[in-house]
Design a protein around this nucleic acid. Structure first.
Lengths: 341, 341
DNA sequence: TTAGTGATTGTTAGCGTTACCATAACGCGA
DNA sequence: TCGCGTTATGGTAACGCTAACAATCACTAA
């Protein structure tokens, strides 16, 4: 059904090759011929078939990007950063949403490879993503990890210093007077979760506060996870005076649960988290957070990937650690300077 | 470099055709042969080349989705809805971000067509998208518009009743006592902007309030647009007692500008808008809005598209109008019942 | 004149896959 | 033993495109 090169060639009274030359702007086509061909292209609304083109040229000018959640205010700018950088390099991005699900992620990886993307940007679902990545790595497939590390998987990565960030956050809580701090953490399978938990522990340790497992609530990193963890936490007696959640969505969920119980932040309990919530920060600068530069993750990741693709990247794998900044707002430090209870 | 069907065939000691049969689960392959082939596939990490496959089968099992802004809390669920529905139908989605830019949009459309997507879901940048769409429509290409109509362009569409929604919002403002209401509107090129402006006018008209052009501020629908419009509006004397912005991002920008001037909402001025801001609604249920069901836009749109693709969709174009719901929160109705000033 | 030069265009093959038809091998009844 | 259907497998062409080479032509220098 769609118009092909041959259709154009026939209409213009030339060979397919000549049309191809015109389409690709190659030199060595007579001006008059070129005009006739261009006329035919316009008349027929011819659009080249990239499948065919890629098949012969062996390059698709496409990279894949898999994130656990496009909607998350942290990943959204990551996507944008990657896309912008890719565009500048003449590449397009195939975007996939793994929902943090290993099986879905695996499917998407296969899918992208089968689409012959020239490289892959991946914010992995967790440590077990390793199984899907190993064959890629073994085959020398250009791959850059974003945001999350995968143990024993040696490849380029853009990540932030989660331990330091979490430690900063914890120390801040302690500095404003909190001693009993709950932590909502991700499943043990995700490096960011582990690192932030470690930062939390270190933060407590430097102040000589014992870390109690009772205060650590493993959960999922979506809003529901925060909601559930908060409900569990609310059983505690005495209640913690502050919560440090592993990411932004979890904090929102916690917030929701607290509100439902009539517990207000920061009057009754402090709340801090990793990752900012962009739009929210504008409307009511409220949550104290450690903010990661999402857009930079995306653009740096894409840059690393393109270096890999073009073979400019040597054998050793590169590791970029970005700084995460503490943004102190109002969600943990009560006005009296001392937390309630 | 990548492994092909022939490599597998050679390894398994069979012809390419046999491997193809195994890969596609066709019958008529000896159990023992099948085992050998499967072994070879696994050993070689063979992944079929979808480019080649699509080239011969003439179907890519892929649809395109173009939105003006993935990051916008309204479009994010649209994307998710479309993707989920597509997945269920065995399709994948190529997601593109037009940034509301006509040229970029046009490029993406060409790109997607050249990728031979089987259909296109488009939230158009504006009326002028028409030029890019006409050739598609003429060629019978499956196309479904989302959220925004394009005049004189007859095709399937999922849209909400913007006039009614805007009217409701305006009437609500009037009901709580506002009479001098500013409206931040989109460029005249976008149907949603026009319709909401029309709703605003109708809302005023039913109460016999004259609509003054001085109160209407055309701007862009991002945060910066809202910010700038608010700055212009602040020159007005007397100040309006309420603002109705054309979408969520514009409201956030306005909010920002107001805060910077020390003007608080709703005490000093009321603020309402179209589209909710999901995460924000949880953390502090504040903005009074007309909420559109984003996910439904995406999934219904995808459904329409698949009916089109499979030819089940007759000749006439379908138009689905969704209801937009007024959610009354705190951003326009002051506690005293009377707006300031 | 005659090969030589350069500019323009065409021909052929192949990218990796599948549809379609051909072939081979086997068993089975007559 | 032959013929026939049945099952398993292979060969060939084609999808739309481009790389590489081949052909054609006008024209020029010797």
């Amino acid at each position: 059904m769609p118009v092909t090169l041959r259709d154009v060639a026939q209409k213009a009274g030339v060979s397919a090759m000549t049309v191809s030359r015109v389409v690709n702007g190659s030199s060595g086509v007579d001006a008059e011929t070129q005009r006739r061909v261009e006329e035919a292209i316009l008349a027929l609304h011819y659009i080249p078939n990239r499948l065919a083109r890629s098949l012969v040229s062996q390059q698709t000018k496409t990279i894949g990007l898999i994130v656990p959640d496009v909607v998350n205010p942290f990943f959204a700018p990551v996507v944008r950063g990657a896309e912008t950088t890719a565009r500048k390099a003449g590449y397009r991005v195939l975007l996939c949403n793994s929902e943090g699900d290993l099986r879905l992620e695996r499917e998407y990886i296969e899918d992208l490879v089968s689409h012959r993307v020239e490289g892959l940007l991946l914010a992995p679902a967790g440590d077990h993503s390793r199984l899907a990545l190993l064959p890629l790595l073994k085959g020398g497939f250009p791959l850059v990890l974003l945001d999350r590390a995968v143990p024993e998987t040696d490849c380029d990565i853009v990540i932030s210093d989660n331990v330091a960030g979490a430690k900063k956050l914890t120390e801040h809580l302690i500095a404003v007077g909190h001693r009993r701090i709950a932590h909502f953490t991700d499943s043990d399978d995700v490096s960011t979760g582990r690192d932030r938990l470690e930062g939390y522990r270190q933060g407590l340790a430097t102040s000589g506060i014992p870390a109690s497992d009772d205060l650590i609530f493993p959960t999922t990193t979506d809003r529901m996870g925060g909601y559930r963890a908060a409900q569990l936490m609310l059983e505690l007696d005495p209640l913690p005076t502050a919560i440090f959640t592993v990411n932004n969505m979890t904090a929102l969920g916690a917030m929701q649960a607290l509100r439902e119980r009539g517990i207000s932040v920061p009057e009754d309990i402090g709340l801090v988290c990793f990752d900012d919530v962009e739009h929210l920060a504008v409307l009511s600068p409220f949550l104290t957070v450690v903010d990661q530069p999402g857009e930079t993750f995306g653009s740096l990741g894409a840059q690393l990937l393109f270096e890999r693709i073009s073979g400019k990247a040597g054998n050793r794998s590169r590791r970029i650690v970005l700084q995460a900044d503490l943004i102190v707002r109002k969600s943990c430090c009560v006005n009296t300077g001392v937390p309630a209870r």
